[in-house]
Amino acid sequence: MIVLADLTKRYGEKTAVDHLSFQIQPGVVTGFLGPNGAGKSSTMRMILGLDRPTAGTVEIAGRPYRDIAYPLRTIGALLDPRTGHPGQSARSHLLGMARSNRLPSSRVDHVLGAVGLAEVARKRIGSFSLGMGQRLGIASALLGDPQIVMLDEPVNGLDPDGVVWIRKLMRSLAAEGRTVFVSSHLMSEMQETADHLIVIGRGALIADAPIDQVIAQSTRNSVKVRSPQTASLREALERAGMTVTTLEDSELQVTAGNLDQVGAIAFSIGAQVDELAFHRPSLEQAYLELTADSLEYDAILPRPTGT
C-alpha cells in the first residue's frame, strides 16, 4: 500500500502537485490519470524519494522510501524508458541493481526472460529501441519481486503484442495480491486494465473511485428512445426535468433519466416506443468530462481571421 498525505510539490512558482491525499490499495490495478502536466510523474518521483516534497508525506508499506533498506524488494518502478547507462548491457545494468539490493543474479536472468529480452541481454542499452527500453524498465521494476509495482506510461512505445502483454501482467500482479499503480493516457487500455482510478488535474485530486463509479457518474449516461411521436414525448420528458436532444427525426437522447422513468413517461402519454436503450459512455468520455476544467495545456484553436 502507498499512502500520500497532503503531498505538495512546487518547482519555483509552479505548483506541480497540490495537496494530494490518497491511498493505493493492494490486490487491484489503480489507474493514475490526468492531462499532460497534471503532476503524475512528479507524484511518482516523490513516492520514490527522488524529488523532495515541498509539503506532505508519502509512505510505502508504512515507511518513507529512504527508510527502506533494500527498496527494490518492496517497490519496483518504471519511470522513464531511458533506464541505465547507454554504454552498459541490459544484463549488467540489472546485475548492478541486483547487487545493490542483495538479490541473487538468478533474478536478473529470470526477469530478462519474463520481458522477452533474454536474447539481447548482452547488447548495449544505448542501441535499444523505445519499446525494448520500456521492456528493460519493466524488468527493472520486477527485479526484486516487489509487492508494489508502479509504472509511468508503461505501454508508451510498445507494439500491440506488448500492450496486451502489459495488460495481462498488471492483471496477474494484482491477482497475486500486489499493489499496482499505473499511469496512462490510453483510456481504452485503462478501461480494460484498471479496477480503481485516481484522476488529477493541475496537481489536485479530481476523482478517487472505482472505475465503474467514475463512469456511472458521468452525465453522458443516457437513454436513447425511438418513437414516431417525438414532439409530444420530448415535451413530456422535459416537463419531468430531463435533458433531451433530438438525434434524428424519430430518435431522442435523454440524460438525467433512467430506462424505467423514460418508459413510464412514454406510456403515460400513450406514445409508441420502437426502441429504448441505455447508453453507457466510455471511460474516455467520462474522463474528458471530468478533466475538462483542468486542462493544463488546452488546445488553442485558430481564430477566424477578420479584417
Partner: peptide
C-alpha cells in the same frame, strides 16, 4: 514474476548495505 527467490540467504545489517552499494557501483 516470482519464478526464482528474490531474497538471498545472507544476513542483513549496516555494513552489508554499504557493501552492496559498493558492489553496485563497482558493477557500473
Amino acid at each position: 514474476i516470482s519464478g526464482s527467490p528474490a531474497t538471498g540467504a545472507k544476513t542483513r545489517g549496516g555494513p552489508s548495505r554499504l557493501g552492496s552499494s559498493i558492489a553496485f557501483e563497482w558493477t557500473k
